[in-house]
């Protein structure tokens, strides 16, 4: 591609008078991308998340040992060495392999929580914002009540009742994390509810259901994505905390929080058993936080300073 065509393509993307909806959309995406990629830390975050995805997909290929079966005789609690880069745990399992497989459980938790909590919040928020009146009042009061609760303690109590396990941990976290999404969706809905184009759709006889689904929800998506990304780190930390307390994933699953819990017994002598999985949690949470910050700055220039 010559410099000329790149230049003209850029001009097309940055055109102030886009000829089609597609051009406007691509142009906006291009501007957001430029702002995003100028932010080196956000780019680092993106790299971390992509690595996480790749590792999770290829854990079977990348991991040098089995994550669940170890050599109980010869390799218990080995310090990091050439064969076992991160050492081995009390059952002789290679910690590196367990961490690589553990990335799958981290992704599993994060995605499942997002898939449950975000649509619930979106639905509650858009319906409250569009309907207004007493529906709005009731829904928002419920949202605010949930927002005022201590999330971790509540999740703990939920898991205590539901019984320990990774699915119940996901459910408990999802139950406590939808309210902020509802608030955001409602705020966005209120800004567009009285706009002319919604009026136009109403005049054409669209049902409230269709308006909310087709014309309001899509507008809330981008701010919701930013918020969900920023919340990912919190979700990972809560899930790991539940795992640490023995309420999340159960051994022998190589979930990182659970791994820290089982490494806790030897932490004073073999600190790496608990150290390595915690470090993995730190890196992935950091990745989501950096990415979320960058996305927020790129998609919303107003909040760029904060």
């Amino acid at each position: 591609m010559s410099a000329d065509t790149i230049e003209s393509r850029r001009a097309w993307l940055l055109s102030e008078r886009p000829a089609s909806r597609m051009q406007a959309r691509l142009g906006r995406a291009y501007v957001a991308w430029r702002r995003f990629s100028a932010n080196r830390l956000a780019f680092l975050g993106l790299l971390i998340i992509i690595s996480l995805l790749v590792i999770a997909a290829l854990a079977g290929v990348l991991a040098p040992y089995s994550p669940t079966f170890g050599d109980l005789k010869g390799s218990r609690l080995l310090a990091p060495c050439a064969e076992h880069w991160f050492g081995t745990d009390d059952l002789g399992r290679d910690i590196l392999s367990r961490i690589l497989y553990g990335s799958r459980w981290t992704l599993y938790v994060v995605i499942l929580v997002a898939v449950i909590a975000a649509p619930v919040g979106l639905l509650v928020g858009t319906v409250a914002g569009y309907a207004g009146g007493w529906i709005d009042a009731v829904l928002m009061r419920v949202t605010d009540i949930f927002l005022a609760f201590p999330k971790l303690i509540l999740a703990l109590a939920f898991v205590a009742a539901l019984g320990p396990g990774i699915e119940n941990a996901v459910l408990a976290i999802a139950i406590t994390s939808w309210p902020p999404y509802a608030r955001i969706a409602r705020a966005e809905t209120l800004t567009v509810r009285n706009s002319d184009y919604i009026k136009a759709v109403q005049l054409m006889g669209a049902s409230p259901f269709r308006i909310v689904l087709r014309h309001i929800m899509p507008l809330c998506i981008s701010s919701l994505i930013v918020r969900v990304t920023l919340d990912m780190a919190g979700i990972i930390l809560t899930a790991a905390g539940l795992g640490f307390l023995g309420l999340g994933a159960q051994p022998p699953l190589p979930e990182w929080g659970t791994m820290i819990a089982s490494g806790r017994r030897f932490v004073l002598d073999q600190w790496w058993v608990a150290g390595a999985p915690g470090f993995a949690i730190l890196i992935v949470s950091l990745g989501f936080n950096l990415l979320g910050d960058g996305l927020r700055d790129a998609l919303d220039p107003r909040s760029g300073d904060q």
Binding site: A233, L237, A240, G241, F244, G257, I260, R264, V267, W271, A274, G275, P277, G278, I281, L282, S285, L286, F288, N289
Partner: peptide, 10 residues
């Protein structure tokens, strides 16, 4: 980003 219980252990 850091798990509080992990940092505590270390």
């Amino acid at each position: 980003s850091v798990p509080i219980f992990w940092l505590g252990l270390l």
